[in-house]
Amino acid sequence: FLELCQKQSIYFDPATEDLETIQHHTVDFLGINQYYPKRVRAPRYQWNEETPFHPERYYEVFDLHGKKMNNSRGWEIYPKIIYDIAMYLKENYHNIPWLITENGMGREYEEQYMDEKGIVQDDYRIEFIGQHLHYLIKATEEGANCEGYMLWAFTDCVSPMNAFKNRYGLVRIELNDERSRTLKKSASWYQTLIDKRELDLPDEIYK
């Protein structure tokens, strides 16, 4: 990697004392924000040498046919990626301690899933979280050094790119003067998960 950076003139050119500082002050743990995979393949065309460096010099995006999608965000849903990440860290990075610092499901127009009591029936979010946790637990059972999982997010939140267009929370925030809040179905499910410390979902949800 360092040789590649030097070749492309993007190496940070450290002094000897900089490298010594890095060597003696390695990170304590790694935090990973994970929502979707990015699939790539070898590039089919010659890179224009006059173009400034970009990592896409070495790959092009690959669109997997038949992939499962969160169409609200245009993101692929592939829960096994958490297992793949865990095994990669275990095998290639000395099984450094790490944790999931963000993982969650954003959806548009969640009001369409409200029941007669005004509770959002977000089974899609329960499925998303449940599948990802299933593979994360499987990874830890196989020796991955993951120390935690942080859900994004507790409540619906403002995105700098789309305001409240996509809702991520276990708790719904209404955009009224009171900013009233209601628990979604996923909130009760997640509370039970915390209390019981058991991931109990139908077998078909893990497929």
Rank of each mutant, 00 (worst) to 15 (best):
I119L: 13
E204I: 11
E20T: 14
G148H: 13
K38D: 14
L175G: 04
E56N: 13
R181Q: 09
L30Y: 14
W47K: 06
C157D: 13
D115M: 13
L133Q: 05
S188A: 10
K68C: 10
I85G: 01
L183G: 08
P79F: 01
Y113Q: 02
L183D: 08
P202T: 02
D63V: 09
M105T: 07
P37S: 03
L175A: 05
W47P: 00
E17P: 09
N70S: 07
N145Y: 06
K117Q: 14
Y58G: 03
D84T: 10
Q191F: 08
Y206V: 07
T140E: 03
E116H: 15
K80M: 13
H134A: 12
E178G: 07
R197Y: 06
H132L: 09
L183A: 13
G66M: 00
G130A: 14
E116R: 15
I81C: 06
D177L: 04
Y59P: 02
M87L: 07
L2W: 12
R181I: 11
I173M: 02
H94V: 04
Q191V: 04
G66V: 00
V40N: 09
V61N: 09
I85K: 04
M161R: 09
V158K: 12
L2E: 13
A153L: 13
H132S: 06
D203K: 12
T140Q: 05
G104N: 08
